[in-house]
Design a protein around this nucleic acid. Structure first.
Lengths: 209, 209
DNA sequence: TTTACTTTCAAACAAGCGTTTGATACGCTT
DNA sequence: AAGCGTATCAAACGCTTGTTTGAAAGTAAA
């Protein structure tokens, strides 16, 4: 059994190097734009390694996805009041989306999938996006009260997510528009604060109508 | 000269067929995902037609872009009050983005470019997106007054654009999330109305702080 | 040492891509 | 009718892609 154990240990190293490299490249270039060869080069692995360990490029993407960090965000701060939980969630979500130092490139991969679906999108929607929408829906319901209809509530969720994702999706554009752009910690917090203020006002306006 | 005139007339037909097919395919599959062969097939043209008429796939994209409809939106309704102009702009912008019957697939191509830049992005930013941001910035300034700083104002522009673009970018996801989704005229107007109400509340909240 | 098994590797594969080529057909001028 | 310029076409080119292959290397049990 030592044979298998050691072999697995060595194998696991290249496996995890491949996964890490894949997350980087997928989040930078998208699934279509990413090449197996670049992933293998960054992982310092042979070009056949991806197919050996994961069967295919699709299989690599499926295993590279990890929804735990996003799910953790939703379970945190459960004892705070609704609007505080919204505030904290948006801040942490924006950190995930924008902070280059954040190891969780998961959200960036997922954000790319939105515009350019692959075979993995069904799994992403089922396991990550649907729970996220549900979480935000329930949270907003606590803030907004029972008077607002389901369609309006859902559109509020969309308004918040739209604002958040804009900074990620439009990053190449915003960089060209004013080239001093840099997403450091302070800037991200300011963005998150704006989204919270802007959205809470929008939400409360709807509940008063 | 008749030679040239008739030749041009025949040539122009395939040229415009290619442009139309290109707009369809680019907006559906993105620039990377679109293939010259499919564009030519849809245009019922030979596979070499793109390179003959436009030099390259990049050249085809550059000529397929047409910013006039988006620019027209910004010049319309100049005699209305600021918040009405915002309301009308958002409605027409959403129609451009979502209405399948709308012949202007330009915005859909541009929306794809945001997430996945190509060589055409510089031109798009310069000639379409930068003017759009400037337009919205000035419009919001009229609504919001002079007390709000430039950074906050810009973030309000981002909040509005983010909400609008979300429906386009996330369309594949929203379709999977609840499969009764359909963007008919009435639904698009309801979405636009929500974005306007939501955003005006957010804006006014900022100007009161 | 032999054997069995897993992992790595360079090389090649088939398929698809954007693009180029040379021939062909057509319309016009001379 | 001959010559010229343009548009179209099937075919092929060179390149990159994801994937496959068969040999080599390494490790541990027999």
């Amino acid at each position: 059994m030592r044979q298998i154990a050691d072999a697995n240990a060595a194998s696991e190293q290249t496996r995890s190097r491949l996964l890490e490299a894949a997350r980087e490249v997928f989040s930078q270039r998208g699934f279509q734009g990413a090449t197996v060869r670049e992933i293998c080069r960054r992982a310092e692995a042979n070009g056949a390694a991806v197919n050996y360990h994961f069967g295919s490029k699709d299989g690599l993407l499926a295993e590279a996805l990890n929804f735990a960090p996003l799910a953790a965000l939703q379970k945190a701060n459960a004892n705070e009041c609704p609007s505080t939980r919204l505030r904290l969630f948006i801040r942490d979500f924006m950190m995930m989306l924008l902070d280059e130092k954040n190891p969780s490139s998961q959200c960036r991969i997922m954000a790319r999938e939105l515009a350019d679906p692959t075979s993995a999108l069904d799994k992403i929607v089922r396991e990550a996006i649907a729970p996220l929408h549900e979480f935000l829906g329930k949270l907003l319901r606590e803030i907004i009260g029972e008077k607002v209809g389901a369609a309006d509530l859902r559109r509020c969720v969309y308004s918040i997510l739209g604002q958040c994702l804009f900074y990620r999706h439009s990053h190449p554009v915003l960089q060209r528009l004013h080239n001093t752009l840099r997403y450091d910690h302070k800037e991200i917090e300011a963005i998150a604060e704006h989204i919270v203020e802007f959205s809470l006002a929008g939400i409360k306006h709807l509940s008063k109508k």
